[in-house]
Every structure is written in structure tokens, then in C-alpha cells.
Design a protein around this nucleic acid. Structure first.
Lengths: 91, 91
DNA sequence: ATAATAATTAGATATTTGTCTAAATATATA
DNA sequence: TATATATTTAGACAAATATCTAATTATTAT
């Protein structure tokens, strides 16, 4: 299996969960800390932390430590890769 | 939960498997029967049948009975819906 | 230094998923 | 009609997944 497939595996895995898709939508609006993200869901912080990890492994988000906080941001460059993959379904 | 979310749920679920993504690529080339699709994999026919069912529930493929065969085809209209969803991540 | 806050890691558990074999259904052919 | 072929359905099972609570790590404030 090629590295490209493995990466797309991670991307599709990451997108295959409504909580993670909602997290992406929240980060589209503005960057947020892990805690701010967790506040938007009725899910424990460790679970949100786990979702964020899966999004990171897919390169869909980046994270940066700011003091005791961790600030998350959406990574739109991988979105272009998804576009390319989806395009191959049509052409 | 809205019907749109449910549909995207099914779409992302369907795409979250390399065998199903390969099936879509095969159907992109040309329409094929369930048996022809199964011949391309080292997976039992019932398993492939199950994959095809998941792709159908996501509206990613259509099927048509032709005598004793079932001919499968890719449905590109849903691809446009995926595009729209992915686009919302950028704008 | 100690306590409080933010986040992650560890370990457990119920649910979902991908796969298999066996059985059932539907169609074609001898 | 009986047999062969194509496909799906049913039921079982191991692996993956999403969730939780408890514990740990890192940083800030008293």
C-alpha cells in the first residue's frame, strides 16, 4: 500500500465522525483551544482530545502550545488533497 | 439530526474503506457486475456484496438487474454533494 | 512551594465494522 | 424439471472505534 493511500485512509477515517466534522466547522470560524472546543460538546475532554488527535494524524488540523493552552487551527492545504482525490472519481 | 447530515454520514462512512474506494475506481472505468467486481479482490463475494450495499446506501453507486447479473455503476451526482461539503471547510 | 487550571495518557467497556461460511433466492440452460 | 450460475441474506466472530473515569503532565497563580 502506498503512502498516499495511507494518508487518504487517515483523512477519510477522520471525516467519518460527525463530532470531528463539527470540530472542523468550529475551527473554520476561528482558532480555538482544546477546552473551548470541548465546551461545544456533551462529550468528555479526554474524548475530544482523542478526536483532535485523529484530526491531527490526518493533517486536517494543526496545534500550537500557548502557555498552558493548546490552540488548534484547521489546515486547509489537506482540503485541496481531498478535492484532488474526489476529482479522480469523476475524470 | 438533519437528513443532510445523515446522508453525509453515509457518504463518509462509505468512503472510509480502501476496498470500497477501489470499487469506485473500478466503476469509474466502466460498469461492472457484482461478480466482476468481486474478481478484482481477495475477498469473498458476500463481503463484496456487503461493500456494494454500503456504497448504495451512500448513493455512490446504482445497481440494475440484468437477467441473473446485477450491473453496478458509479453515481457521480453525489460526488458534487461531497464537493459542496468539502468546500464549506474552506469558505 | 502549593494549589488551581489545561490538556493528555492509560485503561476499561460497549458498539460498530469487515470478514467469513452456510443457506437462500433468482435466473438461465440442458 | 433438474442443474448450474449469480447474487444476496443470515449468523458468527475478531478487530477497530468512541466513549468514559482516573491518573499524569505541564503551566500559572497565590
Amino acid at each position: 500500500m502506498s503512502k498516499y493511500i495511507i494518508t487518504m485512509n487517515n483523512v477519510f477515517k477522520a471525516l467519518n465522525d460527525s463530532t470531528r466534522r463539527e470540530i472542523l466547522m468550529l475551527l473554520k470560524e476561528k482558532n480555538r483551544t482544546a477546552g473551548e472546543i470541548a465546551d461545544q460538546f456533551n462529550i468528555s475532554k479526554p474524548s475530544i482530545s482523542h478526536h483532535l488527535d485523529i484530526l491531527k494524524r490526518a493533517d486536517l488540523v494543526t496545534s500550537e502550545k500557548k502557555g498552558q493552552f493548546v490552540l488548534y487551527a484547521i489546515n486547509t492545504t489537506i482540503v485541496d488533497d481531498i478535492f484532488k482525490w474526489i476529482l479522480t472519481l469523476k475524470n
